[in-house]
């Protein structure tokens, strides 16, 4: 089972230069929740995630994580979450295995290889990531999700560049994560096939 989490977003407003994003947005994320942030390009989906994680400034509103104000104590939230952005931090100079080792240093090689197996990359575990395709690099990053036991997943467009097989693996893993008491916040343009998320609609 995953650690129980409860993240409350109350009347959140973000400002990016000229644009006001997410005016007075409120919702909450709890164990077992799958939340899809929807909206057109430029509606502020990625900015919302980054604001929750703390590197886009918040104009107004509150963020409460397990009863604590996130703007004061961000460590708790950061320790319990795993964030994968548009570019998921896979280094070109490293092989697939080395990339995973950087992010999950406490796992044995055996476990890392098993995770790569699940995303059909075991054959490439010794190949520098520079020689892999964008979709393969994303799959390395996704393998991090099931190597760690973080409760909260923040996935920003995780399906980009993934093939059908990759999408279905990720959806299966998300379902398993939710049933174990985890929570997922996801932005995606393509609809989820097997899961029915709570949708938060952002308008431009």
């Amino acid at each position: 089972m995953r650690k129980t989490v409860k993240l409350d977003i109350k009347n959140l407003s973000i400002e990016r230069g000229e644009r006001d994003l997410c005016c007075e947005l409120s919702f909450s994320v709890q164990s077992g929740d799958l939340i899809r942030i929807a909206g057109e390009n430029g509606a502020g989906k990625s900015s919302l995630m980054k604001a929750i994680l703390g590197w886009v400034p918040i104009e107004d509103g509150e963020l409460i994580y397990n009863g604590e104000d996130v703007t004061q104590h961000r460590d708790m939230l950061l320790q319990d979450q795993l964030y994968l952005g548009h570019t998921p931090g896979i280094k070109n100079v490293f092989t697939a295995l080395e990339n995973l080792k950087l992010y999950c240093p406490d796992k044995s090689d055996r476990q890392l290889e098993q995770a790569l197996e699940e995303v059909q990359l075991l054959a490439f575990s010794d190949t520098p990531a520079a020689q892999l395709s964008a979709g393969q690099k994303r799959r390395i990053a996704l393998a991090r999700l099931w190597l760690t036991d973080k409760s909260l997943w923040f996935l920003d467009e995780p399906f980009t560049a993934l093939d059908v097989k990759g999408v279905s693996v990720l959806e299966e893993k998300m379902a398993a994560h939710l049933s174990e008491g985890g929570a997922v916040v996801i932005t995606t343009h393509q609809p989820l096939l097997h899961l029915s998320p709570k949708v938060i609609e952002l308008s431009v």
Partner: peptide
């Protein structure tokens, strides 16, 4: 910056 590692720095806690 380009491969997103800096974002991972910030998200790592």
């Amino acid at each position: 910056y380009n491969d997103g590692s800096l974002e991972q720095w910030l998200a790592s806690g």
